[in-house]
Amino acid sequence: MSAHRAYEVDVRRLDELSAVELYELLKLRVDVFVVEQACAYPELDGNDADCLHLRLIDGGALIACARLWRPTPDRLPRIGRVAVSPTHRGKRLGDALMRDAISACETVYPGEAIEISAQSHLQRFYGSFGFTPISEEYLEDGIPHVDMVRRV
């Protein structure tokens, strides 16, 4: 873990997380995506083992996270499951989380563009980091989304 601002940035594979760290990560994602957004969908989708997991930690507490997909022959690196703890909102942690996620992707997958599947109402937010829409709006688990890419 490296110190970054008032929090630590930790990027690890799933099998490098302790049981407690994994529980905290999954709890945050379920609290945000399933409970807060009232969206019943398969949060445990079988993809976590193939991704890197970026966590922002403050004083030992998980305050934000993102999932970083590795590139495949058919897909660019991708940032997903971007979540900030409800108790830490209003501190611009979403901005920090995206900057750290982009930086991690650029370090691990240099020279690659980065994709995201963004909730449509967050297009402007992701656009502020250089992402541009590459698809029409579509429904994912009942929520409007749009695919976006950040070119190199």
Rank of each mutant, 00 (worst) to 15 (best):
M1Q: 14
M1A: 15
A3H: 10
R5F: 02
A6N: 14
E8N: 13
E8S: 12
V9N: 06
D10S: 13
V11Y: 00
V11S: 06
V11N: 01
E16D: 14
S18Y: 09
V20M: 10
V20A: 15
E21H: 02
E24M: 03
E24L: 08
L25S: 05
L25C: 01
R29E: 05
R29G: 05
V30A: 15
F33T: 05
E36T: 13
Q37S: 08
C39W: 03
C39M: 12
Y41L: 00
P42Y: 06
P42K: 06
E43G: 07
D45V: 00
D45Q: 04
G46E: 08
N47T: 13
D48M: 09
D48L: 12
D48A: 08
D50H: 10
D50A: 15
C51V: 03
L52D: 09
L54W: 07
L54G: 04
R55K: 14
R55E: 00
I63M: 05
A64P: 02
A66D: 06
A66M: 12
A66I: 10
R67N: 03
W69A: 14
P71L: 02
P71V: 04
P73L: 14
R75D: 11
L76Q: 10
P77T: 05
P77I: 07
V82N: 02
V84M: 07
V84L: 04
S85Q: 03
P86H: 05
H88V: 00
H88C: 12
H88A: 12
R92V: 01
R92K: 15
L93P: 07
L93T: 10
D95A: 10
D95I: 10
L97S: 04
D100W: 05
D100I: 00
I102K: 06
A104L: 03
C105H: 07
C105T: 08
T107I: 02
Y109I: 02
P110R: 06
A113I: 06
I114E: 03
E115I: 00
I116F: 03
I116R: 02
A118H: 10
Q119D: 08
Q119M: 12
Q119T: 09
S120E: 15
S120N: 14
H121S: 08
H121L: 13
Q123P: 01
F125Q: 01
G130S: 02
T132E: 15
E136S: 14
E137C: 11
Y138P: 05
D141Y: 11
D141G: 05
G142Q: 05
I143N: 09
H145I: 08
V146S: 06
D147G: 13
R150P: 08
